[in-house]
Design a binder for these strands. Structure first.
Length: 313
DNA sequence: GCTAAGTAAAGGGTGGGAGC
DNA sequence: GCTCCCACCCTTTACTTAGC
């Protein structure tokens, strides 16, 4: 059977070829032999009257025609995949579905840990695969590989639905016995003290608050770069370092670690943690249930306290 | 029986490394 | 810098299989 003289199965091969730019790897991806994929490429070349992929040395490069086909073909296949794999109904009490969620360890601590307790109570068969953000998170959302992405607004993918989960502000955190820090830290003292900062991903993207500081033209004396938010309190304990942490996260750790929380001398704006899902999943009742559940749980979180008068130790 | 699409195997182009 | 060898990758060919 053909559609407009094209065997639609060839679009699956085309998508793999355009993504991988390698006949052998594309063949492996769609479970064909390498020569079968080469044959499929020939039929595609014949249909589109274009070379599509050109051999330059050992590399295959896309023609302009192939470049123009890559995105619409990938999007169309994702739409088809969503259509045929999404169950028409979702019953949390009986579902054994597995959801994948990208969120930082900070969001995991302040939101997901509690939300997952609730989810397990109402949906005992449901499982959640939690993934940490990396440099590929928007690509993974675009490819439909994840169900929900939780991140700050600047790091979300464009053109997909999103919703605010909760807001947070920042506080300074010091070891309770840090003798360099009193009840408050002045603006100048902030830049004199040594810091623990968070950097994510292979390209070493700085965390939001450091990005903000760089906008001010001042840099901190960062003594330790932490790959995660959760490691920050451990890197402050027993030292004279301070760290700038999300308030909810800092309060979470101060419950069981000897930490002192202080107001930041910098007027750092609040951040908004948002949840995002692929536009093709807006009709997925399971994803919408999970998104609503997280939103409802986020609404039960206490609002951040006013930024003054902490000095907890 | 015909046709299309698959596999296995052979052939050929290219790039990188080793040796001189 | 040149040559040789080898690995990698794509194309082609011969044959097989499945659907009509």
């Amino acid at each position: 059977m053909k559609f407009e003289k094209l065997d639609l199965n060839l679009l699956v091969a085309l998508d793999a070829l355009l993504t991988e730019r390698n006949v052998s790897v594309a063949a492996e991806r769609v479970h064909l032999s390498q020569s079968a994929m080469s044959g499929a490429l020939n039929r595609l070349r014949e249909f589109f009257k274009d070379e599509l992929l050109i051999n330059i040395g050992r590399r295959m490069v896309l023609t302009p025609r192939a470049e123009s086909l890559a995105e619409p073909v990938a999007e169309m296949l994702l739409q088809v995949k969503t259509m045929i794999t999404t169950p028409p109904e979702f019953d949390p009490t009986t579902s054994d579905r597995r959801f994948s969620v990208i969120a930082s360890d900070y969001v995991a601590d302040v939101l997901l840990a509690g939300a997952l307790r609730h989810i397990h109570a109402v949906a005992p068969g449901v499982s959640i695969e939690m993934l940490l953000p990396d440099d590929t998170l928007t690509e993974r959302l675009e490819r439909g590989e994840i169900d929900l992405l939780i991140n700050l607004e600047p790091y979300l993918a464009p053109f997909h639905p999103r919703e605010v989960l909760f807001e947070d502000d920042f506080v300074l955190v010091a070891w309770a016995e840090n003798d360099l820090v009193g009840d408050a830290v002045s603006f100048d003292q902030f830049f004199e003290l040594t810091h623990v900062a968070v950097q994510h991903g292979r390209n070493r993207h700085p965390a939001f608050e450091q990005w903000f500081l760089e906008r001010f033209g001042r840099t901190r004396r960062v003594e330790v770069f932490s790959p995660s938010f959760s490691l920050v309190p451990q890197l402050v304990l027993g030292t004279r370092r301070i760290a700038t942490m999300h308030r909810r996260h800092a309060e979470h750790y101060a419950r069981f670690l000897p930490l002192r929380l202080l107001s930041s001398p910098l007027d750092i704006p609040m951040v908004r943690e948002m949840v995002q899902w692929h536009k093709f999943k807006r009709r997925d009742p399971g994803v919408q249930w999970l998104q609503r559940t997280l939103r409802d749980h986020a609404a039960t979180l206490s609002q951040p306290a006013p930024a003054a008068s902490m000095g907890k130790g």
